[in-house]
């Protein structure tokens, strides 16, 4: 399936659910990050602030679950809808680093 879906986003962890497991035993972590940056747009500069829902699995989930609230992370991942009847995107973590 062609199509590009690759996001790199940094932010502060603002919400961490408890680590949960799927029935097959896959560890999953729902969390949120608050992002702040300055971007170029239409020949000028602008401030960006947004909060994004994220989902990490397995190793990444376990590492992030241990992180303190407020930790800065840079995430590389892709967007997927929250559910079949939802248009709200969730950032799925492929890899991340604490910054």
């Amino acid at each position: 399936m062609p199509g590009t879906n690759r996001i790199t986003l940094s932010g502060r962890i603002t919400g961490l659910d408890a680590l949960r497991y799927t029935p097959a035993g896959v560890a999953l972590l729902d969390f949120r990050i608050a992002h702040e940056s300055e971007q170029a747009e239409a020949g000028g500069k602008r401030q960006v602030r947004l909060e994004v829902a994220c989902l990490a699995a397995e190793r990444e989930a376990r590492l992030l679950a241990a992180a303190p609230l407020g930790a800065e992370v840079e995430i590389e991942g892709f967007l997927a809808p929250r559910g079949r009847s939802s248009r709200q995107p969730v950032l799925h973590v492929i890899s991340f680093a604490f910054v």
Partner: peptide, 17 residues
């Protein structure tokens, strides 16, 4: 059967009971 790790149709691992 074993519980599948991911959805056999779309690959989503977040399968839900």
């Amino acid at each position: 059967e074993p519980i599948p790790r991911a959805c056999p149709v779309c690959g989503n691992v977040d399968l839900f009971p």
